[in-house]
Design a protein around this nucleic acid. Structure first.
Lengths: 248, 248
DNA sequence: CAGGCACAGTGGTATATACAACTATCAGAG
DNA sequence: CTCTGATAGTTGTATATACCACTGTGCCTG
């Protein structure tokens, strides 16, 4: 069992968060399970109840747990609430769900934008853009196919990146200085086609969730148009909605 | 100035949250402003630093404040256009899309909550709840089937409402005084089953978009659990996402 | 003048403690 | 049998305290 140490550079509540995340990932704690009480966790790891409580509270906020007064704290059945109104890439999304993201690059190339893509990226058709075709895995299993079209000055440098082990979004934001501010996304139900069926290892005609997303950097500049096909029976999209703004 | 009292039924940190919200609403605290320190707030309102900190932490989580270590806590600069994902019922949703909503009530009854529903509504299994089964039309064409489970004190009065010509959400908010504040929704791709196929007039095995939604009224009290099946080829779900950003 | 250091103020982490509110269970009274 | 009350265990709220990490200021030294 992992232990929590004083000397570690990381705070104790953070260490406990990671330990509990791992218990979910590994399946030791399953959805609906009652987890040990705050006092129990504190005692078990040699930290105070309030510190354990802080770790739990943050995971509750992230949607991994829910509490019921007088009864205890439980592992969520739905995995995410708040977090997903936030724009996340596949990598971040999977981590938030407690699954291990994986990627296989099927192709990466520069090529001219066709009309549909050009319109979404607000560029002229025929301009050279970076096109990335990836198979996405969760815990090693094929989950989705994603085609990204990226357009910015110098985007051909992406050809030299290792996109199997790096998050595209993280790269854009850190190395290329392109903050991803917001995105418009469409979701639609459909059926798996023959080409996708091979990659995803499911029968043709299985349910599929199609998503199309335009991601914007600063000044509402479109930078990516991505279209994905998720296996319908392996992926649930979560969203959180608010009725009215708290502030006028 | 408002004060925080011990006798109040509401917790102190909650009272302070409301006070600070009001300061933002009223313009006393403007975006970018430095707010008083945790110690200062505690002293000012006669509560401990940790209690003040809890109030601030929750407002940070809600995006109203951001903290900078060593400097202080500031009012967020971000526009409050955050709530781009509006919580809407079917009626409002269709109107926003420029289509004519229609409804056929298939059944409306009181009956005991099964385990799955009870958990989502955070009530005990077996409690009597209102169950509404509706076929939803857009411009006269069948679009979706929706089953709503509603639980609040006096919900049996809904049996007498005309729910073919009134929006359920509007009724709850206006007549029953139950504001619908937010909702968690799941979306998943699937296939149309035989029963649904008849109502929706599409072949069995057509693509379908399944949604499950828990709607909350004040104080995070779940009030409705609705599960819907949309014809996959007639409905697209739109969402707008923002990236969580460190403002500084 | 330039650089460095001390200091005060801020949020960040952590503990110990106490009681309230709520839930489930069980024993006992009626 | 049913109802009541006691009880133990849970999360929820609240306090007091302590020290750490980081930031800005300004004084002091070189």
């Amino acid at each position: 069992m992992s232990t929590i140490v004083r000397k570690s550079p990381l705070p104790r509540y953070y260490q406990l968060k990671e330990i509990m995340r791992e218990k979910i990932r590994s399946g030791e704690w399953k959805p609906g399970d009652l987890i040990p009480s705050e006092r129990e966790l504190g005692e078990q790891y040699g930290i105070s109840r309030m510190t354990a409580r802080q770790a739990i509270t943050e995971l509750v906020n992230e949607g991994l747990f829910y509490r019921e007064q007088g009864k205890g704290t439980f592992v969520s059945r739905r995995k995410i609430t708040q977090q997903l109104i936030h724009l996340t890439g596949f990598t971040e999304d999977m981590k938030a769900r407690g699954q291990q993201p994986g990627t296989r690059v099927l192709s990466a190339e520069m090529r001219p934008a066709d009309e549909a893509v050009a319109e979404r990226l607000r560029i002229k058709p025929g301009l050279q853009i970076f096109r990335l075709h990836r198979l996405r895995l969760a815990d090693g299993e094929p989950l989705a196919i994603e085609v990204s079209h990226i357009s910015f000055i110098g985007c051909e440098k992406l050809l030299e990146e290792d996109l199997e082990h790096n998050s595209l979004y993280r790269l854009l934001e850190t190395k290329y200085g392109l903050p991803l501010v917001e995105a418009d996304q469409e979701l639609e139900a459909g059926l798996i086609g023959s080409e996708e069926a091979q990659y995803l290892k499911v029968p043709v005609g299985s349910p599929a969730l199609f998503t199309r997303r335009v991601t914007y950097t600063e000044r509402n500049q479109p930078i990516e148009y991505a279209s994905s096909v998720y296996c319908g029976n392996k992926y649930v999209f979560y969203t959180h909605m608010k009725r009215e703004q708290l502030l006028s």
